[in-house]
Write a protein that binds this DNA or RNA. Structure first.
Lengths: 168, 168
DNA sequence: ATAAAGTTTCATTTATTTTTGAAAGTTTAA
DNA sequence: TTAAACTTTCAAAAATAAATGAAACTTTAT
């Protein structure tokens, strides 16, 4: 396998993986492309390499920057904007975890709290079970979310350190 | 908020959360419904509650069973089949982690290994960076995947125990 | 064996998500 | 200030994913 083929395979794979985890394919592909580029890439080049439209490139780059995992760069004497990806994997994982927590887990927790707090006085077995189960779910998700927070506080190389701890 | 409303809200929320993580909405909704039901539910009832077709119900129940998080049950003297969800949350998380690892992470690792192993002899800076970055990614994903494995070996209440370890 | 009760499958339809492309908006240099 | 170079926005189109429903299939009781 030669370089170009390998690069393409990587970009496609990362894109597919993204889809399966609820991140749109192009967004994941752009990220993949930037991750393996040793220098900043222009929007033009991204469009060219991925065969996508200007609008698509623009919107997904914006989304990646909102996630905090892609940065805009300016080159001296160049009018165009260039883009780079966060390349430190620990940092990348932390940022993704933070964003998903903020956007998805936190709102879900709020709902779980609400629904698990219904007045369970006129309680059939059915209602009791509902309150019990959603409360447990709330506790579980909260615990998992807090764990993520803790991990992100670990800073440098938290994954390696965590593995050590677990292996103990 | 009364029971019926809370239940509906929970099912909707779980469904939306599923979508965001690459699990189809109905599949997540059926799972939610079964999670909070204190007794086995027939396909008929699932169709009724979620307002979905027989085919849809059948296929998503099958998928949930393939994931190992929903079980078929038979009631004495009843011709129909009934369904229940795995209700132990530790067990649920372990099963979901195992399946996603098997279906998505493992194949991705295989590709990462391939593309990071290209002959980097005629190596431009560009190629060197590609090999370096994909190798790091391989190591990272492998480590994370192994950690999941370890966690699932913890068995009972692994999340709680893990939190303790991390807090240390 | 057969028919009733129930389940699964899958080609087609429907809904959702993503992408395009052209117009509007910005920025910069002269 | 203007016009060239570049970016963003968003309504409409295209692509993708999910749902329907009717026919085929299975199981069970008689």
């Amino acid at each position: 396998m030669e370089f170009k083929e390998a690069k393409n395979k990587f970009v496609q794979t990362w894109g597919a993986l993204g889809s399966q985890w609820g991140i749109n394919k192009t967004m994941a592909q752009i990220h993949a492309l930037l991750m393996v580029s040793n220098e900043p890439v222009s929007m033009e080049d991204i469009m060219e390499e991925l065969q996508i439209s200007r609008g698509n490139a623009s919107m997904n780059l914006r989304a990646l920057m909102d996630w905090g995992i892609v940065y805009k760069e300016y080159k001296a004497g160049e009018r165009r904007e260039f883009f780079t990806a966060e390349k430190d994997l620990d940092e990348l994982a932390v940022k993704i975890a933070r964003e998903r927590s903020k956007r998805e887990i936190k709102p879900a927790l709020k709902i779980l709290k609400e629904v698990s707090s219904i007045e369970a006085k006129e309680s059939s077995e059915e209602e009791k079970h509902f309150v019990d189960q959603t409360s447990k779910l709330y506790d579980f998700v909260l615990k998992a979310d807090n764990m993520l927070d803790k991990m992100t506080e670990f800073n440098e190389n938290w994954l390696g350190r965590l593995v050590l701890k677990i292996m103990k």
